[in-house]
Amino acid sequence: MRNKTIKQSAKEAAVGYLSRRDHAETELRRKLKTRGFDAQEIDQAISHCQEYGWLNDTRYAAMMVRNGVAKGWGALRIKQEMKMKGVGEDIVNHAIEESDIDWYEHGKEVAQRKFGETAIDSPKEKARRFRFLQYRGFDFDQITYALAVTDE
């Protein structure tokens, strides 16, 4: 009887997703909805996962901050990524504040890793480095600090 397929429940699907990696609640809801589960099944699955501590947006946000820092991202980029995953703004801001990252020093490290000790010899090169750090999610003050330190 191989042709007979057993339909997976929303709880099983949710646990399957969470066993591979952490998800934000909104992201998990979206995936379950795409799989064709109705809203009541999804709510039950989400509650089940939260009850057992498998789904936790605060923990997810802290992990996203750590991963973002490891990728050389600034706070703005990390916030944007979490917003796209559906993490609440309060949780995002709390995770960034709790991370005790010095974003100025982190920007400097990212710039040095990318550009080494080479001097900025033209306005075009400075603009290129500025754009790179801006894309990585550092704000104006952080970029200015990072480039001034490497410019010496």
Rank of each mutant, 00 (worst) to 15 (best):
K85A: 11
T5M: 13
G36N: 09
A70T: 11
M82G: 03
H48W: 03
E98K: 13
E12W: 04
T34M: 15
K71N: 13
I101G: 06
L133H: 02
D22Y: 12
R21Y: 07
R131N: 15
Q112G: 14
D57P: 01
V92Y: 00
Y145E: 03
G116F: 05
R21M: 10
R59K: 09
G137N: 03
N67G: 12
N67S: 13
Q40L: 09
Q40F: 08
A70M: 10
R128Q: 12
M1W: 08
A61S: 02
A95Q: 02
H106K: 15
K11R: 14
P123V: 09
K124H: 12
R29W: 04
Y17K: 12
G36H: 07
I78E: 01
A13I: 00
Q142S: 04
G72P: 05
L28Q: 00
R77W: 03
I120H: 09
A127P: 07
L133N: 03
T150L: 14
R113K: 15
E98A: 15
R30L: 11
G88V: 07
E81K: 06
N3L: 15
W73R: 08
W103V: 00
I96M: 04
F132V: 05
F138D: 01
A62D: 09
S9F: 00
W54C: 05
A14P: 00
R131G: 10
E105W: 07
T144C: 06
V149T: 11
Q40V: 08
L55R: 03
D151G: 10
M84Y: 15
G88F: 14
G116L: 09
K83H: 12
T34V: 15
M63I: 15
D100W: 12
L133G: 01
T34H: 15
W73K: 05
A39Y: 06
N56A: 05
K85D: 10
S99I: 06
E125G: 08
R66S: 14
A127D: 12
Q44D: 06
Y145I: 03
N93A: 09
G88M: 10
G86T: 05
A62P: 05
L18P: 00
D141M: 09
E117Y: 11
V149F: 02
A39K: 08
I143W: 01
I78S: 01
A62F: 08
Y17R: 07
